[in-house]
Amino acid sequence: MTGFQVGKIEKNNTKAVVSLVVGIIALLFIVFVWIGMILGLLGMILGVIALLETKKTAQKGKYIAIAGVVCNLLAIILPIIIIFVIFNIYMNPSVT
């Protein structure tokens, strides 16, 4: 088999993949407000680091890191919105 060259397999940035996985898990745990928010914060940090690494080293995984950041941002913001909505429902009962 002469002339056949094995190409390098470019791997995705590991932190980007971990950020996306943590973001998905954090979205599943938003019903447990603090767990989802803490996981979202950790995943957000990993996602930002992964974005910086992919930009600096031209490594694959930029869009995975962006998806991880978005999932983690939702996991941080959605519980806050849910808390405000529930708080307003209980503090302002409708007068019938």
Rank of each mutant, 00 (worst) to 15 (best):
L52A: 13
G61R: 00
I49K: 09
M37Y: 02
G68C: 04
G61L: 04
I38D: 00
T57H: 10
L74F: 08
K56Y: 06
L74E: 11
A75V: 00
W34G: 06
E53G: 06
L73F: 14
I76A: 01
G36N: 01
L74K: 04
K60L: 14
A67C: 09
A50P: 07
N72E: 00
K60Q: 13
L78S: 03
T54Y: 02
K62M: 10
T54N: 03
G43M: 03
E53A: 09
V48F: 12
I38M: 01
L52C: 10
M37P: 06
K62D: 10
A58F: 06
G36E: 01
K62P: 05
M37E: 05
L51H: 08
I45A: 08
G40E: 08
L46P: 11
V48G: 08
A58T: 13
C71G: 05
I45Y: 09
T54L: 05
Y63G: 12
V48Q: 10
Q59H: 08
G68A: 05
K55A: 15
C71V: 07
L73T: 15
A50G: 12
L41I: 15
C71M: 11
L73S: 06
V48S: 11
T54R: 03
C71D: 06
V70R: 02
M44T: 15
G68T: 04
I76V: 15
A58Q: 15
I64P: 06
L52R: 13
A58S: 14
L51S: 12
N72C: 13
K60A: 05
A58G: 13
I76G: 00
C71A: 15
A50I: 12
C71L: 10
A67E: 13
I76S: 00
G43L: 07
G43P: 11
L73C: 11
V48E: 13
G61S: 04
E53S: 11
L74R: 00
A50D: 14
I38S: 01
G61D: 01
P79D: 00
L74D: 06
L41A: 14
G61N: 02
L42Q: 08
L39E: 09
A75L: 00
